[in-house]
Simulated assay, not measured.
Amino acid sequence: MPLPDLDSSVGHSFGLEIDAVLIRQITEVTGLKMEQDVIELKQNTADGKYAIKKLPGRPKAGEVTLTRGLTEDNSFESWITDSRFGRMSSARRNGSIIVYDYEGIPIKRYKLVNAWPKSLEISTLKAGDTSVLTEKLVITYESMEVE
């Protein structure tokens, strides 16, 4: 459902969908971007002046970091185990980061192509601390498509 022209999206509700499994407990997504190389073409113009023209180059692969509260769900751990032991045929997956509106309707989808987990980090364990334990999963992907 597209937003009206003057409204903007509030990033309060989003989730990760991998192999038709939706994980909605994600609390933060960082590093989501599309990027490509820049090629500099150095040349002389018709009147003899030196000019640099910038051209689009190859697309770059990306990385995104997902943070969620620590739960008994072990989907992140089992996914990274596949990549750690070289089972890349099962580790490489296509998935999407989905942004929802206030009514829970998807308004934007960032599709990650050939994504696999690079690292999993558990927050600091400290006796007497009352903060929520989190896990951060860094996912590397070959390309991203916006739907």
Score class of each variant (00 low, 15 high):
Glu147His: 04
Ile98Glu: 09
Ser8Ala: 08
Ile52Ala: 07
Ile18Arg: 02
Gly57Tyr: 08
Lys42Tyr: 05
Leu66His: 02
Arg93Cys: 05
Leu137Trp: 07
Lys136Ile: 09
Val132Ser: 15
Leu22Val: 13
Pro4Asn: 08
Leu120Pro: 07
Ala115Thr: 06
Gly69His: 07
Val10Ile: 14
Asn94Phe: 03
Ser90Lys: 09
Val64Pro: 12
Ser96Arg: 12
Thr27His: 02
Ala20Val: 12
Tyr141Cys: 12
Glu63Phe: 10
Thr45Val: 12
Ile98Trp: 03
Pro4Met: 00
Ala20Gln: 12
Lys136Gly: 04
Asp37Gly: 04
Ile52Tyr: 00
Leu133Phe: 13
Ser89Met: 09
Thr67Gln: 14
Ser143Arg: 14
Gly11Glu: 00
Gly11Trp: 05
Val132Arg: 06
Pro117Gly: 09
Asn74Thr: 09
Lys53Met: 15
Ser119Gln: 14
Leu16Val: 11
Tyr100Trp: 09
Ser8Gln: 09
Leu112Lys: 00
Glu72Leu: 10
Val21Gln: 10
Asp129Lys: 02
Glu72His: 13
Thr134Asn: 15
Ser96Gly: 05
Lys136Val: 12
Arg92Trp: 05
Thr81Val: 09
Ile26Trp: 00
Phe85Pro: 08
Leu112Asn: 01
Ala61Gln: 11
Leu3Pro: 04
Glu135Ala: 05
Lys111Ser: 11
Trp116Ala: 05
Val38Ala: 11
Met88Ala: 00
Ala20Arg: 07
Tyr102Ala: 14
Asp19Pro: 01
Asp19Asn: 12
Glu72Asp: 13
Met144Val: 15
Val113Gln: 04
Lys111Val: 15
Lys108Gln: 15
Arg84Glu: 03
Val64Ala: 03
Thr134His: 05
Glu35Val: 06
Trp116Asp: 07
Lys118Arg: 06
Ile98Val: 13
Thr81Trp: 03
Ile52Gly: 01
Asp73Lys: 00
Glu77Val: 10
Lys60Phe: 02
Pro2Gly: 13
Val64Met: 06
Ser89Ile: 07
Asp37Tyr: 01
Asn44Cys: 07
Asp37Arg: 04
Ile139Met: 01
Leu66Phe: 11
Leu133Asp: 06
Ser131Pro: 12
Thr140Asp: 12
Ser75His: 10
Lys53Leu: 14
Ser90Leu: 11
Ala20Cys: 11
Gly48Glu: 03
Asn74Val: 12
Glu145Gly: 10
Ala127Thr: 13
Pro117Gln: 04
Ile80Lys: 07
Arg84Ser: 11
Ile52Cys: 11
Glu77His: 03
Thr30Asn: 11
Leu16Ser: 02
Asp7Lys: 12
Pro2Ala: 11
Ala127Gln: 09
Ser13Met: 07
Glu35Gln: 15
Val64Thr: 10
Ser96Asn: 03
Glu135Ser: 02
Ile122Ser: 10
Tyr141Ser: 12
Lys54Asn: 08
Glu40Ala: 14
Val10Ser: 10
Leu55Met: 10
Arg68Ile: 10
Thr65Lys: 07
Thr27Lys: 07
Tyr102Thr: 14
Thr27Val: 02
Ile52Ser: 14
Leu112Trp: 00
